[in-house]
Structure formats: C-alpha cells, structure tokens
Design a binder for these strands. Sequence first.
DNA 1: TTCCTATGACGAACGCTGTTCGTTCTACGA
DNA 2: TCGTAGAACGAACAGCGTTCGTCATAGGAA
Lengths: 253, 253
Amino acid sequence: MRAEPPPTADQPEVPTPGWRTPRKAARPPRRAPLTVDAIVDAALEIVDTEGLDALSMRRVAQKLDTGAASLYAHVANKEDLIELVLDRVSGEMSFPEPDPEHWGDQMQDGMRQVRDIYARHRDLAKANFGRIPTTPHSLEAMEGMLAILKAGGLPDKVIAWSADLIALYATSAAYEMGLRELREEQDPGWTERYFGQIGAFFASLPKERFPVSVSMLDALTQGDDNDRFGFGLDVIMLGMQAYADRMRANGEA
Amino acid sequence: MRAEPPPTADQPEVPTPGWRTPRKAARPPRRAPLTVDAIVDAALEIVDTEGLDALSMRRVAQKLDTGAASLYAHVANKEDLIELVLDRVSGEMSFPEPDPEHWGDQMQDGMRQVRDIYARHRDLAKANFGRIPTTPHSLEAMEGMLAILKAGGLPDKVIAWSADLIALYATSAAYEMGLRELREEQDPGWTERYFGQIGAFFASLPKERFPVSVSMLDALTQGDDNDRFGFGLDVIMLGMQAYADRMRANGEA
DNA sequence: TTCCTATGACGAACGCTGTTCGTTCTACGA
DNA sequence: TCGTAGAACGAACAGCGTTCGTCATAGGAA
C-alpha cells in the first residue's frame, strides 16, 4: 500500500471523491492508553455497584470512554477479565502469622474476613465456584489459610480437605449474602418485604403436611447472617477436631 | 369491526389492495396447545444436555416448535421457568421414614442423593443459591431432611441451622461437580487435561513463596468427588454432635 | 531523518439474549 | 350466531460477547 504523494505545482492535490472514506476524518483525540489495571478498576466498580450480572464488556468500555473492542487488546475475553477481578479482590485478604495457641480464632477471623470481602463486592463470589486458585493473590490467600490450619496440628488430609470445605462455605455464604444486599440496594426495602412474605408463608404452612417444619418455625427463622455464619464455622471446626480424633483413635494418623 | 360481506352479483368482490395485509394469510396449522409441563420438560432437557446457561426462552420454544412469545402465556418469565424446573427436580428427591437408630446414615444417604440428583442435571444447582424453599416439592424435601435430623434428638437450633448448612454444602458440591461434568461432556478429555495442568502447575510452585502449600501437595490433590464430599458430610455431622454436646455442657439446651 | 512494522484503538457487524407489543386465530358461553 | 377471552405468534427493542477490517501512532531499523 502506497502513501498519497504530497501535492506539488505539477501535480495539484487530487480531490477526494465524496463517497471515498476520508483519510483523516475528524476523530476524537487519542486518549491515554488503556491498561489492564484501569480495566479491572472499572470492572470492579461496576460489580460493586450493580452486581456481577451487570458486568459487560460494553459497560466497562463505556466507563473508560472507549469501545468494547478496545478491551480485547489487554484482556483475552470476559472470563479472563473476571479472573483478574477475582485476583484483585483476593489481594484484599490477609492472614496473620500462625499462632498455634489461637489457630482456631485465627481461622474464624480469617473466614469472616473472606466472607465480608466477597460480600462487599456484591455477588462476585458467584464467580469463584469451580475455580482452583492459580492466580498470585488467590494462591497467597490459600497459603495463609493452610498455614493457620497447619498450626492446629491436624493430619494433612484433614487440613487440605477442610480448607476446601471452609473455602466453599465462605464462598457460598458470601454469595447468598451479597445477592441479598444487592437486591436491597437496587430495591430499597426488599429485605424486609421479602422476609416478611417468607415468614407469613411459612406461618401459613399446613401442619398436617409439614409437621416437622411447622414445629420448628422459630428455629428456622431465627438468627441473622452473622449468627448463622458463625454457627457454620463452629460446626465445621468442631467437626474437623472430632474427625482428627477419630482418625487417631483408628490409628490412621 | 365488521366482516367482509359475501360477494353478490350486485356487489362484486372488492379486490384487496396489495399493501393491505391479507386477512387469511397462509399459516401453519394450529398445533397442540402448550402446557406448563411440556415447557418444563423442554427446559429440563436443555439443561440436562447443555447446561443452565444454554437455557433460553427461544431454545425452549424451538424445542416445542413455537416462538418465544408463546411461552409467556404459561410462564411469567425466565426466572419463573427456572423455579418450575427446580421444583420438578426437587420432586426427584425422596427421604426415608426417620429411624432414630440410623439417622446419621439416613442423613448421609439423603445428602448424597441430593447432590447426585442436582449433578445429574449439570450445573442446575447454581440456580438454587439464594432461594428459600417455597415450592411444593422443595418444601417436601426440606420436611424430609428436618424429620431425619429431628430423629437425632439434637436441639432445634442445631437442627434448623445445620439443615441450612448441609443443604448449602450439597448445593455447592453439586454445582462444582455438575460444572466439571458439563465441561467434560462438551469437550471430551477436558477433565484429564485440566487436572493434569493444575497438577503440573502446583508442582511448579516455588516452595519459598508457598512453603505450606508445597508441603501439602499430596493431600491437596488426593481424593475424588465422592471421597471429598463424604469427608465434608462427616465433618459437618460430627460438628453438629459436638456443638450440641457443648450446648448441653453449657446448659443451653 | 526516513521508512517499516507492530500494536493498540475502534466502528461496524454477527448472532445471540429476555421481554413486550399488536395482531390474529380459535374455542367456548350466551 | 355472535361476542369475547385467551392463546399463539411475528416483529421489534435494547442489550450481550466477540471478531473483523481499518486506522493512527510509536519505536526500531536503515
């Protein structure tokens, strides 16, 4: 492809036909170049305010005053972008130096932190299902968790599999909590209305068909997110101990 | 609106202008009427073969030889359709008559069943997050679960909150398992390739930065879905017992 | 300095999505 | 026989992820 020769006296400038696309059409001035960091920033901002389902390549591009296609020079695809966002959020997590005297409390605090961080990013936790940590910050988080569990002196199998279990629990709890908070934010009063309806619905259940459920209505509707999450953590950690004890009693460890 | 009068000798048939839409254009013959059941059938078929993300109103309609708009006469929206699908699947679950001697085994079998049923429907479990059971079959499933737990003689709070915890665990485990099975089906050999890469990746982790993780590689990669799910159930149920014991020791129950 | 090339920016397009609208057709009750 | 309720349904709207071809620029090579 050759460039247009400069006009001279012998060869005056050739007018461009109207139907030919102009070579230097009026274009907005070139903006500051995109960066992966800026893209992740914008994506996370959308997730934080409108939830994961509102995250689209076009919305991210819009926030950066560009077009969706431009993002693909920095990010392989949407899946890749989500992984980057998850890694960014994993970077918010931090675990203390393991203390064998207080590993139980450290673990509980750590998991509360994980849940809160995810929930602060609305329903982002949804994207964490089915993912094995491979990004830098998520690997660090895993390392921090395992280190604390290891300080508890449990068998390796119990530690490794429990880490899975606890992480899955924190992710699930964060997802459900984030989902509810998102709905409340997008539709103020939703929580009260929804749980009011649920309460009324359960109170109206026929006790002939659902005798046990009806007999337990109080217990079923008791407790807020924190109470219930704390209960789950207690149960899992007590269970880990009991499981390890059983292994030792059976001479497996 | 008046009907076109029949042509007579005095009043010959008036030709319809070409631009006027014909009154009786050639249309396919009216088909057997749609039903909610048929719609749920079609939707579940799509979920079973292609996963939840492939479920669209148009695909369902296509399967029923009609248009997407026709579905809205029987189903409020996609969310409603998914709830109907979930209820249908909940109907596959069944729990035995509670036996106080074997409530632990009954619970474990029941939860394995729940996980397997969800996983058989690919990643459908994803849609179960954040949902409180209100549909007939899901209420029955909850009743069956609670009845078995009640036979264990634990305090109501432990039963109710544990039911939540266990159901969440079964849902999460089913989701992750279903996700992997879906990927394997859509891309045969995926599982082996993926876990091979993961194994190689973990083996390549620098032990200076991730000392604990590296020291536990064996434990971290051990066990299949069933082993790990069984471990989680064991831990949770041992934890429930220990939690109840602790409550009793503190005079809380 | 001048040219070439690699790279990022970007508009347009493709084939999807959930949902709504207005129209048409059919079956049933009066 | 008529009127009406309700289902069926095509078209449309705004949005989606991604790809393509084109363009402008920056940096290295000559």
